[in-house]
């Protein structure tokens, strides 16, 4: 039990008639990077929001860092860093003011926050833009601010929903390397992405979601084995498992 940073069991969530998450179970070990893959609308973002306590599950249980989410959502949020799929920030604040706001929320000591903010701004090439209002930032700059906000308080668990969206190649590489280092230090990362190459290169384990269910999970080798495609790429495995691989005819039609 203590080896797991996250354990979600028989998790379900519906929005009206739509069953967004359908009885899934996910376990993530400490220091593990778990990739959550799936086509649009497969339930990845809903699962992440359930884990963070932003949504309430219809059934099932979630324990994050030894804390039951439904009983102490604020306690869970203290140890989790979250990057939403679209960076939700306050656009009338400057990048620096927003990060200061986040630091206040996590009660980060002043000296520490100053140093952390400075390091991250430099590292992600945001120095010089920190006093500009977020409303004027590009998509990638907003994403960088959201990533810094999630990492600043040294979370034990990171929940990152399409976190590399919009990042320039250098920043994307930096974040990937940083995640690997953090994982080596025992921090767990739940990471969703549509870019299968990133999942293949970064994640220790992968769970593929489709129509609210986990249809396959395990290491890359496990997935290839489950799909019956030894030696194949993650893209081929993904398309086979989710049954979305019949694209040739559609391409031919659209090309006419």
């Amino acid at each position: 039990m203590d080896d797991f940073a996250l354990q979600a069991t028989s998790l379900s969530k519906s929005f009206g008639p739509t069953r967004a998450v359908d009885g899934i179970s996910i376990a993530m070990k400490k220091g593990e990077i778990l990739g959550l893959l799936g086509p649009n609308g497969s339930g990845k973002s809903t699962t992440m929001k359930l884990i963070l306590g932003i949504l309430k599950p219809d059934s099932g249980s979630i324990v994050v860092g030894g804390i039951e989410v439904t009983k102490d959502p604020v306690g869970v949020k203290k140890i989790v860093g979250y990057v939403p799929e679209t960076p939700q920030t306050y656009e009338f604040l400057t990048g620096l003011e927003y990060l200061d706001f986040i630091a206040d929320m996590y009660d980060i000591p002043h000296e520490e926050r100053k140093a952390r903010i400075s390091q991250f701004l430099e590292g992600l090439q945001m120095a010089g833009h920190e006093n500009e209002m977020i409303g004027g930032y590009s998509q990638g700059m907003k994403q960088k601010i959201a990533i810094i906000a999630a990492l600043m308080h040294r979370p034990k668990i990171l929940v990152m929903d399409e976190a590399l969206n919009g990042l320039d190649p250098r920043s994307a590489k930096l974040v990937k390397d940083l995640l690997r280092n953090l994982a080596n230090e025992g921090i767990s990362v739940l990471f969703s992405t549509h870019v299968l190459e990133i999942a293949e290169a970064l994640c220790d384990d992968v769970a593929i979601m489709y129509q609210g269910k986990v249809v396959a999970s395990g290491t890359m080798a496990d997935l290839r084995s489950q799909a019956g495609l030894p030696g194949s790429t993650l893209e081929e495995v993904f398309l086979k498992i989710t049954g979305t691989g019949e694209l040739d005819e559609i391409v031919r039609e659209l090309s006419k």
Binding site: T94, L96, E97, D100, A103, H110, R113, K114, I117, S118, H129, E130, N131, E132, M133, G135, G136, Y137
Partner: peptide, 16 residues
């Protein structure tokens, strides 16, 4: 387009 608007150039000093 919304231009980039710099609010302050002062050094960041967090305070209570």
């Amino acid at each position: 387009m919304v231009g980039s608007v710099a609010i302050s150039t002062a050094e960041y000093m967090p305070r209570s």
